[in-house]
């Protein structure tokens, strides 16, 4: 099928299938899925400038569908999302500007790439080991009948970081009753979203694979609410990115709409599936995703190095 805006021929079934797979992952884990979509679109023959913008456009639609389902399931903390949006947009702009400044120096791609690989691999290993320990821990609590049927009752094996962040005395402090947090510094939330935004600006995409575990391990947000809230936040940050890229002629909305046909269905299925899994199981299944991101970056670095 010919797409006249970007001037490329792409198989619509391939686009719908990519959308469907990414939709399920996005709805289930609260990620945009750029680390899979971008190489898949590029491999199909879409020019790189269109890859980034078009991917963001399809993320908007898919995240709306998934976030609406998560809202029905009570998985979105609107207050938390509103604060995080500020940090994400500021962080994203900082990341974009920083990369422009760093580009003037030598080897910026390899430095940023290597740091990202180390961070992503670290997150994957940490998530896998922590969720494995949490699952063993929750086997004991499962014996208590009042907890056994509540899948949203989250158990984390390592909560020292979250407790340290919640103890931070810096005012103003906000309460997040929906997430079960009595009081936390506004700046702690802003810091976590800012770091996620910087990664988003550096690497493109929504950086949900940084933000979702950060919300769980640093802020102490239950996994289901972290997934839903992250998706809600992605709608706003990806919309902002889509408009910016479209103004620069980097969005083929027809490709995004074809992908969205599969993604909308996948996102609905993925979001609904979360109600059948406990927090530690979602995190254990999530662990390979940052690792995939690291492999994609390593492959890109290797290709650039040899071209």
């Amino acid at each position: 099928m010919f797409f006249p805006i970007s001037g490329v021929h792409l198989d619509p079934i391939y686009l719908i299938l990519i959308g469907f797979v990414i939709g399920i992952l996005g709805g289930f884990f609260g990620v945009g899925g750029s680390f899979l979509t971008a190489p898949a679109l590029f491999a199909a023959g879409l020019p790189m400038n269109y890859v980034v913008g078009t991917d963001l456009a399809h993320i908007v639609g898919k995240s709306i569908v998934a976030a609406r389902t998560h809202r029905v399931l009570g998985n979105i903390d609107l207050k938390l999302a509103a604060i995080m949006v500020i940090g994400t947009i500021v962080g994203s702009e900082t990341g974009v500007q920083a990369i422009e400044v760093l580009k003037k120096g030598a080897h910026v791609e390899s430095v940023v790439g290597t740091v990202s690989i180390v961070v992503f691999t670290g997150i994957a290993i940490f998530c896998a080991s922590e969720s494995w320990m949490a699952l063993r821990l929750s086997q004991r609590t499962d014996q208590q009948p009042e907890l056994a049927h509540n899948r949203k009752q989250d158990v984390t094996a390592i909560d020292a970081l979250a407790k340290a962040f919640q103890r931070l005395k810096l005012p103003p402090r906000v309460s997040l009753p929906h997430s079960g947090i009595e009081s936390i510094s506004f700046w702690a939330i802003l810091f976590v979203s800012f770091i996620g935004g910087i990664f988003s600006g550096f690497l493109g995409g929504g950086a949900g694979y940084i933000r979702m575990p950060s919300m769980v391990y640093l802020l102490g947000i239950p996994t289901h609410i972290a997934v839903g809230t992250d998706l809600f936040e992605i709608i706003i940050s990806a919309s902002y990115g889509t408009v910016r890229h479209a103004m620069n002629g980097n969005v083929d909305i027809l490709i995004a709409l074809v992908m969205q046909t599969g993604a909308a269905l996948g996102a609905r299925i993925g979001a609904n599936l979360t109600q059948y899994f406990t927090g530690p199981r979602i995190r254990l299944a999530f662990a390979p995703l940052p690792l995939l991101g690291a492999i994609v970056i390593a492959q890109r670095l290797f290709t650039d190095h040899h071209s």
């Binding site: 805006i5 456009a57 908007v60 639609g61 408009v243 479209a246 909305i253």
Partner: peptide, 25 residues
């Protein structure tokens, strides 16, 4: 849409986002 993307990128940007939102919401 093809004409709009070439002639008026700002309007195209908002139409693109509206098409996605209309589909999703």
């Amino acid at each position: 849409l093809k004409g709009l993307s070439a002639k008026d990128p700002a309007v195209y940007a908002w139409v693109a986002i509206l098409l996605m939102i209309a589909q999703a919401v």
